[in-house]
Design a protein around this nucleic acid. Structure first.
Lengths: 334, 334
DNA sequence: GTGAAAGCGCTAACAG
DNA sequence: CTGTTAGCGCTTTCAC
């Protein structure tokens, strides 16, 4: 196909009858260049289809390359997809290119990917940590800013959703509407940071409202099927819940499924994390919506602040969630 | 924080009392090195936390860098997220790192991103084209393999879903179940390649079954709200459809919404593209499921084949769709 | 087995 | 305003 050798600065220089440095000046628009010379160089650049080799430039300038590395557990999950989109947009707006890696939730793969990114001299690293410790050590040794996203890592910068406050706000809405029996659905004990926080938020809301926590209403549900079963069990209780708080998407799906099948549409359902189809569901699903793209954008900003020399102690930035109410039982009570 | 200067090959060489070349040999495991020397070098490498600079290596070897560039319109869309995941996995399995860019569906941004990737000397380019022509020209001039994904570009390699055959199969299922009035929901005239193909598949199935196309049943629906309105209009027809074929996710959402609200759960709904919540919907949603991750993996394979010297004419690879049936109306007929 | 020299494509530092 | 020299971190070539 195309010419095999890409043209270089020197090719342009030779063709234009100037020195390499002059071409460099024109291309980078720094030093002073006579208008005529500039025009001639530009013409040759165009004709040869010359594009400066960014890798070579990076080598020479010695600083970090104009890339940021992003490591997520799994791009099949729309949450991480949207997060990656936010990172890409914020990065590109600042002239940075994104290197993408998936850890699959495996600390070993995570460490490998981070190692690879570091070897490419990324300017910064954004990681949704599977474990994180290793990544932190590697990045620290290399002097590269690292920001944990969605989940805090060990003693480092991070950007997270307001998991606890959001859950509290959601459950408070249910309580405010008059619900007194509000069940919790999620994996117990919660393994992920985010899940732990949401459970804590649930307890906060009950405590604030002076409603004692009934541990019978706190149900372990790891899968959609689990959650559906749990809901049926809860509904069969002598004093059943009138509202459900699902701490994640799987739990929410199971809850809606079970309620729909059982024809119990008077039960309120509120989930942490919004779904595109939430309002089409029957019963409709209220949600504590996260802002994954904003999470990514905030992480980029924080990393770049570090790059600009901000050396204050590690900080945690919290991106607010937003309560989205749908359906009568959630809004009007039992 | 960390030491500011990263250690280099020469640092290791000096500390180990050998030449740079020897360290290079050890690191790359190529030339012959005495066991004792290798051990000493390895120890120093470890102690200094040395990681060879991949950019410098790339410069020197002159070949393409070990990256592949991926350009998608929008990562907020779970389909493209999953596609990116498939690319990442396949790329990493072959020792390649992914550069990620979003075009936002804008040909200008697409060309910018492609230009940037080329300047980074990516080994290959995978593009879900907004326009594609410019990308093709750029990559062609640079001699870099380019594969269009999900939508064909102008006269080049591409990997697509079996949009037409999948739609045909789906509609044939409806017809086979006894439905004779099958409506089509989608943007008309279809702007995207994928949508056009799906409409063609719809017509194919009707033709094969000897059912004449009633253009009244072919409805323009660009948004969810559009689709819901269209469904209500169709149901009010003197001879209304008993089944709906939604050519995309938005159309499907609107259809389910309208049918649910109207209480018309006897109407069959089948969508192109599956949704995680499809079986929880009421009415449940049957689907022609795509395999976005496989699409991405196939694109990587095709690009690498080109890199390995395959110079046969441009070819189109088709990734099969899979029919997922849910709910009685779809399976048992009207 | 090992090393010295040269050079990938580019830019920093100094001339002129 | 423009050119020369040197060298980024690495690998290639060829010598020992």
């Amino acid at each position: 196909m195309g010419m095999e050798r890409r043209s270089t600065l020197h090719d342009v220089a030779r063709e234009a009858g100037v020195s390499a440095k002059t071409v460099s000046r024109v291309v980078n628009g720094d030093g002073p260049v006579a208008a005529a010379t500039r025009a001639r160089v530009l013409a040759v650049t165009e004709r040869l289809g010359f594009r400066p080799n960014l890798l070579a430039r990076s080598i020479r300038t010695g600083g970090p390359d104009s890339t940021v590395g992003l490591v997520v557990p799994d791009l099949g999950n729309p949450f991480f997809g949207a997060l990656a989109g936010g990172v890409e947009e914020a990065a590109r707006a600042r002239g940075l290119t994104v290197l993408l890696g998936c850890s699959g939730g495996d600390p070993v793969r995570e460490a490998e990917v981070v190692g690879d990114f570091l070897a490419r001299r990324t300017a910064a690293l954004l990681v949704v940590p599977a474990a994180g410790g290793e990544a932190l050590a590697q990045a620290g040794a290399a002097g590269v800013p690292l920001v944990f996203v969605d989940r805090p890592g060990p003693d480092a910068d991070c950007v997270v959703s307001s998991n606890r406050a959001g859950a509290r706000e959601g459950v408070a809405q249910l309580l405010g509407a008059g619900h007194r029996r509000v069940a919790f659905l999620g994996d117990l004990p919660p393994e992920l940071y985010t899940r732990r926080e949401r459970l804590a938020g649930y307890r906060d809301a009950l405590a604030e409202a002076g409603v004692p926590v009934d541990e019978v209403l706190v149900a372990d549900a790891r899968t959609t099927a689990d959650a559906a079963d749990a809901v049926l069990r809860l509904l069969a209780l002598p004093d059943p819940p009138t509202a459900l708080f699902a701490s994640n998407v799987n739990a929410a799906t199971g809850a809606v499924l079970a309620l729909g099948r059982a024809g119990r549409r008077e039960v309120a359902v509120l989930a942490f994390d919004d779904l595109p189809l939430a309002e089409v569901l029957d019963p409709p699903l209220s949600a504590v919506a996260q802002a994954p793209a904003e999470l990514g954008a905030a992480a980029v900003r924080l990393a770049l602040a570090r790059l600009d020399g901000d050396d204050s102690p590690p900080r945690t930035e919290t991106v607010p969630t937003r309560l989205v109410l749908r359906g009568n039982p959630v809004m009007a009570g039992p």
